[in-house]
């Protein structure tokens, strides 16, 4: 266990060093993602200036929704940067290097890349929380829990979508659709969804758990919701890991030239 922890720390250090190799590119990419998120939030600001309350959601809640979604996605992308690329890595036969090393394959593969734009997302999430969040110790702790659950849900969902590549070969398109769709659904207030759409958001595509965090976890702590969100994160990440493990027996490798960067 301590060996795996030391390996993870070394891997993150190497990723950071690799990302910082091009300092200007690092700051530009991270900065541009920050600006991109800010523009989205500005549109919401204009919307709420005209309709101050929508299904019980106010501008402060939407800001926290963005803080949780971008922040959760950000830390997951920084520490486990390959999670959106699982399908590509599997279908193009790039798992060989990870399979030849004595570390858990999924963990090794996920941690071998750091997303620079993810750093921008994470910084954006923190700054928005500092601006609109509850800065008491309790508020900070709940925000940290929300970030953790959001990040684990992102990784779990993409591990499931990406592992499909073991069965259907070129799953890059599907994984990309799931990725884009899932992110989009996490940045809209869950209050606007009704009926079957809401059921789907809290079961098949668990974006609703991320979207409802500002209300159910941070504004009015609901133990039932917190437990459900925790279980969803655990179930989706466990299913992703299991599916990936089972899928490894079907891995077909490939002959593409690959470099680690």
């Amino acid at each position: 266990m301590s060996g795996t922890l030391r390996f993870l720390l070394a891997s993150w250090k190497v990723n950071l060093a690799s990302a910082l190799e091009y300092r200007l590119s690092f700051f530009l990419l991270a900065g541009m993602m920050f600006v991109n998120n800010t523009i989205w939030l500005f549109f919401w600001y204009l919307f709420f200036a005209r309709f101050p309350v929508v299904s019980g959601w106010e501008i402060g809640d939407v800001m926290l929704l963005w803080a949780v979604s971008a922040g959760g996605f950000g830390w997951a992308s920084v520490l486990f940067g390959n999670f959106p690329r699982i399908a590509t890595i599997v279908s193009s036969g790039q798992l060989d290097v990870y399979l030849s090393q004595p570390k858990p394959v999924l963990l090794n593969m996920l941690t071998s890349r750091m997303s620079v734009t993810g750093a921008g997302d994470f910084a954006f999430g923190l700054i928005v929380f500092l601006w609109a969040g509850d800065l008491t110790p309790r508020g900070c702790l709940l925000f940290a829990c929300a970030l953790l659950l959001a990040g684990v849900l992102f990784i779990g969902v993409m591990a499931i979508a990406g592992s499909l590549a073991f069965w259907i070969g070129n799953a890059e398109g599907i994984a990309s659709q799931v990725f884009g769709g899932f992110i989009s659904l996490t940045i809209y207030p869950t209050g606007i969804f009704r009926g079957a759409a809401k059921v789907i958001l809290f079961t098949v595509v668990p974006a609703g758990f991320i979207g409802y965090m500002p209300i159910g976890l941070m504004r009015e702590f609901d133990p039932g919701f917190a437990a459900a969100a925790f279980c969803a994160a655990a179930i989706f990440s466990a299913c992703g890991a299991l599916l990936f493990r089972v899928g490894l027996a079907r891995y077909a490798s490939g002959n593409a030239m690959t470099m680690r960067n």
């Binding site: 390996f7 891997s11 190497v14 690799s18 790039q94 290097v97 004595p102 090794n108 690959t258 680690r260």
Partner: peptide, 29 residues
């Protein structure tokens, strides 16, 4: 065992070899 795949590198493209050696030392504990 050790493996060398001529077409699949285990070295980090943007980093010097000494950094990859350090990581490999952690991989093999």
């Amino acid at each position: 065992i050790g493996t060398v795949f001529g077409q699949k590198s285990q070295l980090w493209y943007h980093l010097p070899p000494v950094d990859t050696f350090e990581l490999i030392s952690r991989v093999y504990e």
